[in-house]
């Protein structure tokens, strides 16, 4: 465990010391701040709309952060040859992979925590309403979502050699699943035949990332979800992230390093 956390620590340190994540982070924070400070006649509908824009922005930048930090880990270590002295130590490749996962995921969680804190603060001040449980549920599901995305991206990074192609493929898969996931079944029923079976297969085998998107909970100030649902979602995310990671470790272990 110490080995895994050591690898994760380096990932987080790198993320803190590299500047490019800050750009995205500050941009999102700035827009959130600006949108939060405009008060258009106190109209509840517009306020809701602004909240939705902010949260969508947060979702987009969180996907980008997750994919781009995870996609570069292994390829960059390979290219800059830092993988050699590391793997020459008594550490297994699976431990390296798990450390990378932990580091990227924690980095995502940290930036998400900052986003949600900022958002809660601004909208709380405006509305004088502090639904902390809602925020926590939305934040946690968002973290789970990032975990699946990071694991998927790491898997891609040992499959495709180029960072950019991996990032593009994973990004389009994630966005596709987010937007189309819930409709696949309906499309499958309509299509029928072999295509229908195929689409249904996809519907039941791909992770339903849209389940983790509970922005409405915050936008409409709905009552919080049942905690058992949150627990089930956690298990669901663990299962998928675990599968992707296991595949990634398996693939990484068999790859020659040179």
């Amino acid at each position: 465990m110490q080995k895994i956390s050591a690898v994760a620590g380096v990932v987080i340190l790198e993320m803190i010391r590299r500047k490019d994540v800050y750009v995205l982070f500050f941009l999102t924070a700035l827009i959130t701040l600006v949108l939060g400070s405009v008060d258009l006649f106190g109209d509840a509908k517009i306020a809701r709309y602004l909240k939705e824009v902010c949260l969508t922005l947060m979702w987009m930048s969180s996907v980008i952060i997750a994919v781009f930090t995870a996609a570069r880990q292994i390829p960059v270590e390979r290219e800059s040859r830092t993988l050699f002295p590391l793997l020459a130590k008594p550490i297994t490749r699976s431990e390296v992979m798990l450390g990378k996962f932990l580091g990227c995921w924690l980095a995502c969680c940290i930036s998400l925590a900052a986003f949600y804190l900022l958002f809660a603060l601004i909208s709380g001040i405006r509305e004088q309403h502090w639904p902390l449980a809602n925020y926590f549920q939305a934040f946690w599901l968002h973290c789970l979502f990032s975990g699946i995305v990071v694991a998927l991206t790491l898997l891609g990074s040992v499959w495709f050699t180029a960072v950019s192609s991996n990032a593009t493929i994973v990004l389009s898969c994630v966005v596709g699943m987010l937007l189309l996931g819930r409709h696949l079944h309906k499309v499958a029923v309509k299509a029928g035949g072999i295509a229908g079976h195929f689409l249904d297969g996809l519907y039941f085998s791909l992770p339903h990332l849209e389940w983790f998107d509970v922005r409405d909970l915050i936008i409409h100030n709905w009552p919080r979800m049942d905690w058992t649902i949150v627990g089930q979602d956690t298990l669901y995310a663990c299962a998928y992230a675990g599968c992707f990671l296991a595949l990634a470790c398996w693939r990484f272990r068999r790859q020659p390093i040179h």
């Binding site: 080995k3 380096v10 830092t82 050699f84």
Partner: peptide, 26 residues
């Protein structure tokens, strides 16, 4: 092990790099 041509994590200091490897060795 000293590799033929290597660059170490450039964003770390020497101390941090060695601490990292020391942890890997338990």
């Amino acid at each position: 092990y000293l590799p033929e041509l290597t660059y170490y994590y450039k964003f770390l200091t020497a101390e941090e790099l060695l601490r990292f490897y020391a942890k890997i060795f338990n």
